[in-house]
Design a binder for these strands. Structure first.
Length: 266
DNA sequence: ATGGTGGGGTACCCA
């Protein structure tokens, strides 16, 4: 018997504005669990009557006014994992974790929104870059102290770690999201017990993106993408396959990120 | 080299 869960992640860049697009996501990917980042909605304004109609009666959310915000929507019952760290001492709604009780034992789903990090890749002059590095380092230390098992970690991690996770490796070495110090940090975090559940299916010399800037008029033609959105699993789970919903980048009034979905053997 | 486009919320900040 194989038990699987389809787990999707999407930086939706305003949940309220793009609520209609969630229907398309469900039709295209049929996920059991949807992890969202940049919901940009305070909890008291969360659309909690619409989500059950979409087929997701179970959800957790952690939102604030204007910025950031994460949510986990589920077809099956979930409960919030309590007592998670306040990363970098900030209560800025960048992480939420769910527990799903399954026949083989509980599964933990972590949903992260790592800071973008500003423009200048130098923490001496850009506190946002320092914040990004610090959050990644804190998360690394946290998972080192309590090694994950039966866990899935998803989110907009805002770092493209591999050469072919960006359109131009050399061009982007000094661009925030692909600098060596960020890449090193992200890979160290991943090495605390996780496997890249998407890249394991794709040769490393093949380009793979999940984000295309709004600033390119013809995003598909210029194809200056980056793989900023990730799905990691612990080795006691299996990644049976994945989908990067590139077509979502052409949806009306869409996000600059596209959804990523992995079918996980749990 | 620069600026290009979005969202939030109503002046800029953030991506």
């Amino acid at each position: 018997m194989s038990n699987t869960l389809r787990i999707a992640t999407w930086n939706i860049n305003s949940l309220r504005l793009r609520l209609p697009l969630l229907t398309r996501l469900v039709e295209a990917l049929n996920p059991d669990i949807i992890c969202l980042q940049e919901t940009k909605v305070p909890d008291e304004l969360f659309p909690d009557t619409t989500l059950p109609e979409l087929g997701y009666p179970h959800f957790l959310r952690k939102g604030m006014k204007g910025y950031n915000g994460v949510a986990i929507l589920s077809r099956v019952p979930i409960k919030q994992v309590p007592d998670m760290p306040l990363w970098c001492g900030k209560d800025d709604c960048r992480h939420i974790a769910a527990q799903i009780d399954l026949p083989r034992g509980p599964l933990i789903v972590h949903n992260f929104y790592v800071p973008a990090g500003g423009d200048e890749p130098d923490r001496a002059i850009n506190v946002k870059f320092g914040h990004k590095l610090d959050l990644v380092a804190e998360a690394t230390a946290w998972f080192r102290a309590q090694p994950p098992r039966r866990a899935v970690l998803v989110g907009d991690l805002n770092i493209a770690p591999l050469e072919h996770d960006v359109w131009g490796h050399k061009q982007l070495l000094k661009v925030v999201s692909h600098t060596p110090v960020e890449v090193k940090g992200l890979l160290e975090w991943q090495s605390e017990g996780f496997i890249d559940a998407v890249r394991q299916h794709v040769p490393h010399e093949q380009k793979l993106y999940t984000w295309w800037s709004y600033r390119n008029r013809d995003w598909r033609l210029s194809d200056r993408g980056r793989r900023l959105d990730h799905v990691w699993i612990t080795p006691d789970l299996t990644s049976n396959g994945f989908e990067i919903l590139k077509d979502a980048r052409d949806w009306p009034q869409t996000s600059d990120h596209v959804p990523v979905c992995v079918e996980v053997g749990v």
